[in-house]
């Protein structure tokens, strides 16, 4: 996969470039906004990792020009600003995800994988967790190689939790993902689906955080 890295800091740029190469990306690295726009117009990239505070042309401007030109390339923003305003501005300008400096390299890899997957459609990506396999293309769940029957909404809850391992998903967040899957959701529906999933996949899989939500711990 071809990836364009735009980062003006040499120390950080070098590290990220090296890390991404090791992760299997073909990385081009430029150090300012104008060079980034130029590179994007001449070459075809599959992913863009963009710092916001750049010399000559800001990351937001690069992003805006890119989207104005109709380019749908997935964009990951790296920002030193932690304030919510800056994140919102980045997402509004057409970024697909952001990371705040300093970030974990493994986290960057995972997010980039997710971006690429979303961009190309999730058909190929089978999610594996312990002895559980989830196939989004077929809406199928396997445990220890055997197919487990889950309803569409149970599937939605499981997918959401597996896509966000290590993060607590509140009941409201889980309910919202289910609206996309059709009918209205009852007030304690999430508890019911989690209960069913535990029965089918094992009690230890989904952890309840009292009053906050549910999570599947990182592997």
């Amino acid at each position: 996969m071809r990836l364009l890295l735009v980062e003006d800091d040499d120390l950080l740029g070098e590290g990220v470039e090296l890390g991404l190469r090791k992760a299997g990306y073909a990385v081009d690295w430029v150090r300012d906004g104008e060079a980034a726009s130029a590179a994007l117009s001449y070459e075809d990239y599959d992913l863009l990792v963009l710092d916001l505070g750049l010399p000559k042309k800001s990351g937001l401007e690069v992003l805006k020009d890119l989207r104005d030109a109709g380019d749908k390339i997935p964009v990951m923003i790296l920002t030193a600003m932690s304030s919510i305003d800056h994140r919102v501005a980045g997402l509004d300008a057409g970024a697909d995800d952001y990371l705040t400096k300093p970030f974990d390299l493994p986290e960057l890899y995972a997010r980039l994988r997710a971006l690429a997957r979303r961009h190309t459609g999730r058909t190929e990506a089978i999610i594996e967790y312990a002895d559980i396999q989830l196939n989004p293309a077929a809406y199928e769940v396997h445990k220890a190689g055997e197919k487990v029957d889950v309803s569409r909404r149970e599937y939605a809850v499981l997918l959401n939790l597996l896509e966000n391992t290590g993060r607590v998903m509140s009941r409201e967040m889980l309910e919202q993902t289910m609206y996309g899957w059709g009918e209205e959701v009852g007030s304690n529906a999430v508890e019911v689906y989690v209960h069913h999933l535990r029965k089918k996949l094992g009690n230890d899989l989904i952890r309840t955080i009292r009053g906050i939500g549910y999570m599947i711990e990182k592997e």
């Binding site: 800091d9 120390l11 950080l12 590290g15 990220v16 030193a80 600003m81 400096k101 970030f103 390299l105």
Partner: peptide
Amino acid sequence: AHELRTPLAALKTHVQLMRA
């Protein structure tokens, strides 16, 4: 504080590269 974030990010990245 903002200017400190980028060198911290560089440090962290290189340490993680070594860890791997």
